[in-house]
């Protein structure tokens, strides 16, 4: 299946002659597909996950390959930087005011400068540590509560009002109470971050558990499985795709919430760094801080998704 996508990368002309082969391949697919399964899997990691044969097929139809698509993405980023440069050089002012926005070149220089300083890593480290603790706690407690709520109607009725009412409250609104209720600044920030990650994980776990196919539970019971075994072997695996989606959303909101907490209080952290740069009139640092937040959020979400991949190989 993969060798179909490879020639297309260099010679799009090859597409037409190879098409009849596809049809014969699908005709035999019932027995042949499992045997060829190892091949696309090996390819997928080198292509950064985009090498799934089905995705490969779709890209071929779109007339592009994965590297072509990533080139487009890279160019898109470069165009934005170019526009930003032009706008700040020319002091663009129409709705958006670029007079006080530093140029990309200046920001880049500051970034390089910061990358060789200890203080920048201390800020990043502090934020990563808070997110890691808060997200870890949210994952454990969120999955536990979500499973109970999904499995037991009484537990669901007891907890769902809290989930429904607390979930829409933004992280910023929690700050005063978090400071009043928790002993240290660090713990208040972690608490706020935790709340951000917690609710999506609870809701997605609950939904996933609720969606467990009844037939699979019946099959397990007919095979002699106990309730605990059904939970471990049927309910949790069935809910896993939904749980992972909840964790990925939770990770994004965790960063969002962390920043809110760090802006108000804290001595270190990328949010503190960004906000204090504004107070200190260090405008390039603001942009460095923002980009760092964006990158950290993206990377950690990817980490969740890719970390879960080995457990979701059965999904195709």
């Amino acid at each position: 299946m993969t060798n179909k996508t490879v020639p297309v990368a260099d010679e799009p002309v090859e597409t037409a002659p190879s098409a009849p082969d596809n049809t014969t391949a699908t005709a035999q697919a019932t027995d042949a597909a499992p045997a060829s399964e190892e091949v696309p899997r090996a390819g997928s990691s080198s292509l950064g996950g985009a090498g799934d044969s089905s995705i490969g097929e779709r890209l071929k139809v779109l007339g592009g390959t994965w590297w072509a698509r990533y080139s487009v993405r890279a160019i898109s980023v470069l165009v934005l930087i170019g526009l930003w440069h032009l706008a700040s050089v020319n002091d663009f002012r129409l709705l958006l005011n670029f007079e006080n926005v530093p140029r990309p070149g200046v920001v880049g220089a500051v970034l390089l400068d910061l990358l060789s300083s200890d203080i920048f890593y201390r800020h990043v480290g502090a934020s990563v540590e808070r997110v890691a603790i808060a997200f870890g706690l949210a994952t454990i407690s969120g999955i536990a509560l979500g499973v109970f709520m999904g499995r037991n109607r009484f537990v669901e009725d007891v907890f769902s009002p809290y989930v429904e009412i607390f979930r829409p409250i933004p992280a910023v609104a929690w700050i005063p109470l978090a400071i009043l209720m928790l002993p240290t600044e660090q713990s208040s920030i972690i608490f706020i971050t935790f709340l951000g990650a917690f609710f999506p994980i609870v809701l997605n776990t609950m939904h996933g558990v609720d969606q467990t196919p009844k037939d699979l539970v019946r099959a397990a019971r007919a095979l002699g499985a106990s309730s605990t075994s059904i939970l471990i072997h049927v309910v949790l695996p069935a809910a896993l795709p939904s749980i992972v989606a909840g964790m990925a959303i939770g990770m994004g909101i965790a960063w969002f919430s962390l920043l809110a907490g760090e802006i108000i209080s804290g001595q270190y952290g990328i949010g503190y760094f960004t906000w204090s740069s504004y107070s200190l009139v260090q405008y390039p640092q603001i942009i460095v801080g923002m980009v760092t937040i964006g990158l950290l959020g993206t990377l950690s979400t990817l980490l969740v998704r890719y970390g879960a991949r080995p457990f979701l190989r059965w999904q195709r």
Binding site: A219, R221, A222, L223, W314
Partner: peptide, 18 residues
């Protein structure tokens, strides 16, 4: 249900993750 009575379902009853 009990293991002494085996059950074969119409379809989609295999554990897809196993």
């Amino acid at each position: 249900p009990g293991p002494e009575r085996g059950m074969v379902f119409q379809q989609h009853s295999l554990f897809p993750w196993k």
